[in-house]
């Protein structure tokens, strides 16, 4: 039950997330976000899913955190947002309520008691087959969303030039 690797990764993820919100220096906040996301990748590895773990790091740490850092350094405004105590407490309470609610639902559904061994998909070729056969509408929708966002970005950049 109490797997030390799981506990360590959870602590890294949660502490990283808290630091990302609370760090005085924005840069440290962004780095802590990267730490938190790396912890998530570690959790994926514990779930026997190295492929999502690698892409979690490539996309979120490699691209998203880097873009956030880039923006922070270009804007370079130290105190552009005041964090009040009033906002924090209801926010934390709400988040706890949501997490506990979902946790309760998951517990009720009997998901925890199933071993899950029979559904383990660890090979990429199996994932590829599944995406191209059973889940092809999802792939299509994802491709459409990406195309639409690329077209949108191109249009925006054209507008800015003129």
């Amino acid at each position: 039950m109490a797997d030390p690797a799981f506990i360590a990764l959870s602590v890294i993820t949660v502490i990283g997330a808290i630091l990302a919100l609370e760090a005085k220096e924005l840069i440290y906040g962004a780095l802590a976000l990267g730490l938190s996301l790396s912890g998530m990748a570690g959790l994926f590895i514990l779930l026997d899913a190295p492929f999502p773990a690698a892409f979690q790091i490539t996309v979120y740490v490699g691209a998203v955190v880097v873009l956030i850092l880039f923006t922070i350094m270009l804007v370079r405004r130290e105190k552009w947002m005041q964090i009040g105590e009033k906002v924090a407490i209801p926010g934390v309470a709400g988040a706890l309520a949501i997490v506990l609610g979902f946790g309760f639902l998951a517990y009720q559904s009997g998901f925890i008691n199933s071993t899950g061994k029979e559904n383990v998909v660890s090979s990429i070729s199996v994932i590829g087959d599944q995406i191209l056969s059973a889940y092809w509408p999802v792939l299509l929708v994802l491709a459409l969303v990406l195309t639409a966002s690329i077209v949108g970005a191109l249009t925006l950049s054209k507008v800015e030039k003129e």
Partner: peptide
């Protein structure tokens, strides 16, 4: 010997610009 070694290589490589950027800052 990882099944997804190539992707992991790119995942590791994506840390380098962060290091350069934080070093500069």
């Amino acid at each position: 010997n990882l099944d997804v070694g190539l992707v992991v290589a790119f995942a590791i490589m994506s840390f380098f610009p962060i290091i350069a950027l934080v070093a500069g800052w």
